[in-house]
Nucleic acid binder design. Structure first.
Lengths: 342, 342
DNA sequence: ATGAAAGCGCTAACAA
DNA sequence: TTGTTAGCGCTTTCAT
C-alpha cells in the first residue's frame, strides 16, 4: 500500500496536523515545508481522497445520470460539464440509464450511496424519489432538458416549443402547407413541447394540422425511419416535414434515401440538433440546434453555486437555501438547402 | 445527516457486527433480521460506500480516461463498459482528456487519488507514469485502442492495419489505382497502423503509393475537410479515397458537398466507423466498422477478471498476477454505394 | 450468531 | 506554527 500521512509525519518527525495543514495550503515553516516535500517525494505519498471524504463528508464528486451516453447531444453536454466540474476539483460519476426508468432510479440510489455531493440529472422517468433523497440530504440537484412540476430544484431547459414553432413557421414562409412532423414519445417532456410548437405554428395561421400529418417516433434512429415511411405512405401530398430530434433525423434521412425521395425537390426537410451531420448531407440539411455548451455551463454553474454557498455558510443558522432557479435557453437555426421555396 | 449503522445498532439493541453481517449477506437470526429491516426502513438508513471503501481499501469504482467523450466511437465503448461494470457493482468515473496528454496525466492522478480499483485507458499520449502508478499499487489497467510497447498491462485492440488494407484492396478490386488516403496524426497509434495498411495494400500489388496521395488529417471533422480539399487540389486524376476515421469521414463528406463533387461518379469513397451516418448519406457510404460492443465487453472482462482473482487470492503468498493479455479484434465492412466499379 | 473493540487515512478542535 | 487527540462510518478480528 501507499504511504499515509502518518508515514510522512513519522519520517519528518512532525505532527499529523502539520502535514495536514501543509497539504491543505496552510502555513508551515519553510524548513518543515522542505522536509515534508522531501518525505512526500521519497515515500511516493498521495492523498487518499476517500479518507478525506469520509471525514469531511464531501466527496468532491458529482453524479450525472443521463438517458444515453451514446447520443451526441447528451455526450456534448456531459463533456463540457465534466470539464468544468473537474476544473473546480470535482470528479463526475456518470451513469447511463439507457432511457429506462428503473435503471434511472438504480443509478440515483447507487450515486447516493457513494455520497456524491450533488446530482445532474437528465430525467428519463418522472420518479421523484431519487431526487427527493438528495434534496432531503441537502445535496443540490440540477435537472437538464426536462422540468418536473413538483420538484424543487434548479433546471436548465431550452425553449422547445418555440424552436419547433419557428421551424414550422419557416416551412410556412416557404409556401408549404402540407407539413408533417415526426414527433417523439408523449412521455418525454421535450417531445411534447416540440409537438405543441408544431401545432402552435398552425394555429398561428388560423389552421389546424391534420392528425395524419403527425407521426410518432420514439426518439431513435429506427423509430425515425419508421415514422418517415409512415408519413410518406399516408400523405402523398405532403411537401415538407419537421423532424423533432437528432436520432430520428438520421433515421428519417436514411429512409428517404431508401425510398429514393429527393430532398428538397420532392420533400422539404427540417431536422434537429447536429450541425456536423447536417452539413455532411447533400443537400445540406436545415436544422434546429440546441446550445449544448451553454446548457452544460449553466447547469455546472448552478450546481457549483449551491455547493460553494453551502460550504461558505457552514455557520449554523444559515439553513435557508435559495429558491430553485429555472434557466430557459434559446435554440438556434442553421439554414441548409433542404427546404424548397414553393 | 443520514442514519449510520450505529444508529440502527442502537435502535435494535444489536451489535455493530450483526448489522454489518446482515448488510453483507451474512447469517442473522430471523428475529433480528426483521428488527434490522424495520430499523433501516424507519431511519432511512443507506450504507455509506465511502466509509466502506476506506475500510476495505476497495472503492468499487473504475476510472475511465478517454480522449473525447464527444466521439461516437468512444461513447459507444463507454456506454457498454459502464453498463457491464455497474452490473458488477462497480461505478465508473469518466474523465475526458480532450486528446490532451497533460490532461490525461492529470486525470490519471485525479483518479488514483480517488482510489479507483482499476483503470480503463484509451491513451492519448505515451506517458507511462500514470499507468505505472496504478500497476505499482496492484491495480489493474486495461488499454483500449492503442498498445504501449513498454507497458505491462492488458490491451484490447482492433486490427487497424488489416482493416485499412482490406478497404484499399476493395478499391483496387473495383479497378481503382489512383487511390488517396486521409490519414491521421503520426503520433496516434491507430493512425499509423491504418496508414501502414494502406501502404501494404499497394505493396501487395507490387506498387508504391505516391506521397501526394497521402493527406494528413488530425482525426477531427475540420481536419478531414481540409485534407479532402488538399487531396482534390493536388490530385486531379485521383479516383478513390479512403478516409481513416469517423470524424474525418464526416468532414471529408462535408467538403465534397461544398466542392460539388459527386460520389461515386467523380470520386469513390470508403469511410470509417459509423454505420448510421453511412446509411443516412446519399449514396450510402461504404465503411470500415469497429466492433465497439465487443471491445467494451472484452475490456470489462479483462478488468473484472483481474479484480476478482485478486480478491479471491487475498491469501498471502499469491502475489503473482498473470501476465498481460492482448486481445485483437477483427473489424467489419459495410458495403454502401459509394464505390464505383471502373 | 452476536458483541466489543480496534483501526482504515484523514481533518479539526484544542492545547501548547 | 505545531502536536495531541478524537472521531467520520464502516469492516473485521477475537471472544463469547
Amino acid at each position: 500500500m501507499g504511504a499515509t500521512m502518518k508515514d510522512i509525519a513519522k519520517r519528518t518527525g512532525l505532527g499529523l496536523a502539520t502535514i495536514s495543514s501543509y497539504l491543505n495550503g496552510g502555513n508551515v515553516r519553510e524548513k518543515n515545508r522542505i522536509k515534508i516535500e522531501e518525505a512526500i517525494e521519497e515515500l511516493h505519498f498521495e492523498v487518499n481522497e476517500v479518507a478525506r471524504g469520509l471525514k469531511t463528508n464531501r466527496t468532491k464528486t458529482i453524479g450525472i445520470v443521463i438517458p444515453e451516453l451514446n447520443n451526441i447531444f447528451f455526450a456534448e453536454i456531459i463533456t463540457e460539464t465534466e470539464d468544468i466540474l473537474r476544473n473546480h476539483g470535482y470528479a463526475t460519476m456518470i451513469c447511463d440509464c439507457r432511457s429506462d426508468e428503473k435503471r434511472e432510479e438504480e443509478a440515483e440510489e447507487f450515486l447516493f450511496h457513494r455520497r456524491v455531493d450533488g446530482l445532474i440529472l437528465m430525467p428519463t422517468g418522472n420518479g421523484e424519489k431519487g431526487i427527493q433523497r438528495f434534496l432531503r440530504a441537502g445535496k443540490p440537484v440540477v435537472l437538464i432538458d426536462r422540468k418536473m412540476e413538483q420538484t424543487d430544484c434548479d433546471c436548465v431547459l431550452v425553449d422547445n416549443e418555440g424552436a419547433a414553432e419557428e421551424a414550422v413557421d419557416r416551412l410556412f414562409a416557404a409556401g408549404h402547407r402540407k407539413i408533417g412532423i415526426i414527433a417523439g414519445p408523449d412521455k418525454i417532456y421535450t417531445a411534447k413541447e416540440r409537438l405543441s410548437g408544431y401545432r402552435k405554428a398552425f394555429y398561428g395561421k388560423g389552421m389546424t394540422p391534420g392528425e395524419e400529418f403527425i407521426a410518432r417516433g420514439d426518439y431513435t434512429i429506427a423509430g425515425g425511419a419508421r415514422a418517415m415511411r409512415e408519413l410518406m405512405e399516408k400523405n402523398k401530398e405532403m411537401t415538407a416535414v419537421f423532424i423533432s430530434n437528432y436520432e430520428m433525423t438520421v433515421g428519417a434521412m436514411m429512409e428517404l434515401n431508401d425510398l429514393g425521395v429527393s430532398v428538397p425537390e420532392e420533400l422539404s426537410v427540417i431536422g434537429f440538433d447536429n450541425e456536423d451531420f447536417a452539413k455532411a448531407l447533400r443537400p445540406r440539411l436545415s436544422i434546429v440546434t440546441q446550445p449544448s455548451g451553454e446548457i452544460a455551463r449553466r447547469a455546472a454553474e448552478l450546481l457549483l453555486g449551491r455547493l460553494e454557498r453551502e460550504t461558505a455558510s457552514k455557520q449554523p443558522g444559515n439553513l435557508e437555501s435559495e429558491r430553485p432557479e429555472t434557466v430557459t435557453l434559446k435554440t438556434g437555426f442553421v439554414e441548409g438547402r433542404s427546404v424548397k421555396y414553393l
